[in-house]
C-alpha cells in the first residue's frame, strides 16, 4: 500500500493534531473548575462562596425596629422609596450591636448632590439643582430634612439623624 507509505508524513501531521487535542483535553480537565457550566457560563461554586460572605447590610426593617420616629417621617416624604442604607451605608454591624458600633452621619453637602446635582443625563422631572448656586456649599440639611426633603413637609430641618 504505497499510498499509505507515501502519505505517511500526513498521518504524522494529523497525529500531531490529535496529540495536541488530547493534551488540550487533559489540561482542560485540570484547569476548568468542576462546577463550571452547572447553571450557566460560570463557576456554580462561586454562588455558595458569595452566599458565605458576611452580611454587610441590615435591611430597612432592622432600622425601623429601633428608629420608628425617623421611619414615620421617612415614609411620608419624597424619599420613602430610598432605603436607609443607600445614604447611611451598610450597617449590619450596628444592627447586631447598636451600643458599641455607632455609625457616622453622612455629610449632606456631598451626599445629596450625587443624585441631585443638575445633569442633562437625568430625567427632566427629577429634582435637580446647581449646588454651587443653590446652597453655596452649605450642608443641605440646613434647610431640608433628608428623611422628608420637601421644605415644610416633615420634622424641622437640621435635626435629621
Amino acid at each position: 500500500m504505497s499510498i499509505f507509505k507515501d502519505a505517511g508524513h500526513l498521518f504524522r501531521f494529523a497525529a500531531l493534531f490529535v496529540i495536541a487535542f488530547l493534551v488540550f483535553l487533559v489540561v482542560r480537565h485540570y484547569v476548568v473548575p468542576k462546577s463550571f457550566g452547572k447553571y450557566g457560563h460560570y463557576r456554580a461554586a462561586a454562588m455558595d462562596e458569595i452566599a458565605a460572605h458576611p452580611m454587610q447590610f441590615a435591611g430597612h426593617q432592622a432600622c425601623e425596629q429601633c428608629h420608628s420616629d425617623v421611619a414615620a417621617t421617612h415614609a411620608s416624604g419624597m424619599h420613602a422609596h430610598v432605603n436607609c442604607e443607600a445614604c447611611h451605608g451598610p450597617l449590619a454591624k450596628h444592627a447586631d450591636d447598636p451600643s458599641s458600633v455607632t455609625p457616622k452621619l453622612p455629610d449632606t453637602a456631598t451626599l445629596c448632590v450625587r443624585c441631585h446635582e443638575a445633569s442633562a443625563a437625568r430625567p427632566k422631572n427629577f429634582p435637580q439643582v446647581k449646588s454651587a448656586e443653590h446652597s453655596g456649599g452649605m450642608p443641605c440639611q440646613t434647610c431640608h430634612n433628608p428623611h422628608s426633603p420637601a421644605i415644610g413637609s416633615g420634622a424641622a430641618a437640621g435635626g435629621a439623624k
Partner: peptide
C-alpha cells in the same frame, strides 16, 4: 520539522501538491 518522515519521493511530493 520533518516530524520524523524523510520521504520526499516523487509520489509523496505529488500527494503533498494535491493536499
Amino acid at each position: 520539522m520533518t516530524l520524523g518522515s524523510t520521504n520526499i519521493s516523487e509520489r509523496a511530493l505529488h500527494i503533498d501538491e494535491k493536499v
